[in-house]
Amino acid sequence: MDKIPEIIAYAKEKLQEDLTGHGFDHASRVATLATQIAKKEAVQLDEEVLIAAAYLHDTIDDKVVPDVAIALTKLQSFLKEINFSAQQQAEIIFIITNMSFSKELEAKANLSIAGQIVQDADRLEALGAMGILRTAYFGGSHQHPLHNPMIKPINFTDKKEYRKGTTVINHFYEKLLLLPDKMNTKTAYTEAVRRQKFMEAFLSEFYQEWEPENAEFF
């Protein structure tokens, strides 16, 4: 675990200025959630790989970096420099290049147990109160409309089209509310359902406030 401080420092350097909801604070929470899930599930895994993948997963993401290929090359060199084994390097890179929701629109990868747990932790961050705020933050940064009843949610099957987005509220139906059923572990599924209920209550309130003439506030 002696490499983790360097991993954290690398992630902080790459993510601290992010304004899309994928900053260092997000990476830190994913690492914490991944550690908690692994402990609860009581599985055997390489903890350094788990934590490294959690902190680094957005440092090569096309939502965050302008050139994925360059970011990936830099990350691979960094992992080698701090003496991760070739096997560890390969597992970390495979996890972070195959764990995203958009990647699964193309094909679902066979992630290791560490990868499945990091994926679960990242997806929990897209749910609940944090998920609501991050969705609004990301949508605003990309100039997506907040809500337009005339624009219906899309069942995306193509990453390029998915990246374009529709509206902030549609994103709940296009991705977020689908996540609980995509969890890999029982621990994450239980927490995902709890957060999903909170989001559904939020949406119910949102629709009342969006059309106050039809609401029963008073």
Rank of each mutant, 00 (worst) to 15 (best):
A114V: 02
L45Q: 05
T157N: 11
N83L: 11
L127F: 15
D62C: 03
E48S: 09
Q88F: 06
V49S: 07
I117S: 07
E104D: 12
D58T: 05
R134N: 12
N83A: 14
Q89R: 15
Q116T: 06
Q89V: 01
Y55T: 01
T73V: 07
I51K: 04
E104Q: 14
H147D: 04
A121I: 00
L79S: 11
E48H: 03
F94Q: 09
G115K: 06
A129G: 07
I117M: 11
T35L: 12
K39W: 02
M99D: 03
N98G: 09
L50R: 11
S102V: 14
A69C: 10
K160D: 12
R163S: 10
V118W: 02
S28H: 04
M99C: 03
T97W: 01
P149H: 09
F78T: 10
H147S: 08
K39N: 13
D120C: 12
K103S: 08
F101Q: 00
V49L: 10
P149Y: 04
L111I: 00
S85P: 07
V49D: 02
I95W: 13
Q88P: 13
S141T: 12
A90E: 15
I51H: 02
P153F: 01
G131P: 10
A90F: 08
Q76V: 03
A34Q: 01
K108C: 09
I132H: 07
D62F: 04
